[in-house]
Amino acid sequence: MPTPLVVHDVAKTFTMHVRGGVRLPVVENVSFSLKTGECAVLGGPSGVGKSSILKMVYGNYAVDTGEIIVKHRDALIDVARADPRTVLSIRRETIGYVSQFLRVVPRVGALDIVAEPLVERGMPRDAARERASVLLARLNLPERLWHLPPATFSGGEQQRVNIARGFITDHAVLLLDEPTASLDAVNRQVVIDMIEEKKTAGVALLGIFHDADVRERVADRMVDVSAFAPARAA
């Protein structure tokens, strides 16, 4: 089975220069890989570095040592060393990300926020909006909200906009950071179904799920992040 993502021997430490150069080791020796059509779940207590790993894979956090190899446009690229343009290109085409919180853009309506990744990839705006509206309807976001900027939405509404935006593309790798945290049972089930469909479509998913029930139902494999705890950490 193809392996679109390999994380090899990655380590990350925060150096807090504003606090006198205090060094906070986060993880080390992080090694795992992701196969197509599977959903791997990062496990371990909170504060163990699960989100940091997702952010490193997405290029949002710097990587101190190690490699994060992703198959992008038929080439193997190390996200940890890639230049900003390449990271953006990877995000546009290969790695999708559903963050925990929606970063709202002033004045842009929910439908356009969801459609944007498709528009960026060259799809005509009307077609992209069509696809976006299908997803928003499936996630039960009331239609009267579609054209409003989500700044004033509730946490659950914002989260569904975020999920739709992350799921709308056919990225080969999809990172999920607590996508169901603020959802009710009905919408949680929708997201679980959507994850199953991504798996069937051959997408490799890497997620963090606080909710044990959701975790049980989507996880094909657990990656225990506690095992990557730095040796010197307490």
Partner: peptide
């Protein structure tokens, strides 16, 4: 110098950390 969200979310240089904080 780097990707905007990387510099803002994980600033490396002491001055950038000060700026962001």
């Amino acid at each position: 110098h780097g990707l905007t969200d990387r510099v803002l979310d994980d600033p490396q240089a002491p001055y950038t950390q000060l700026l962001v904080s």
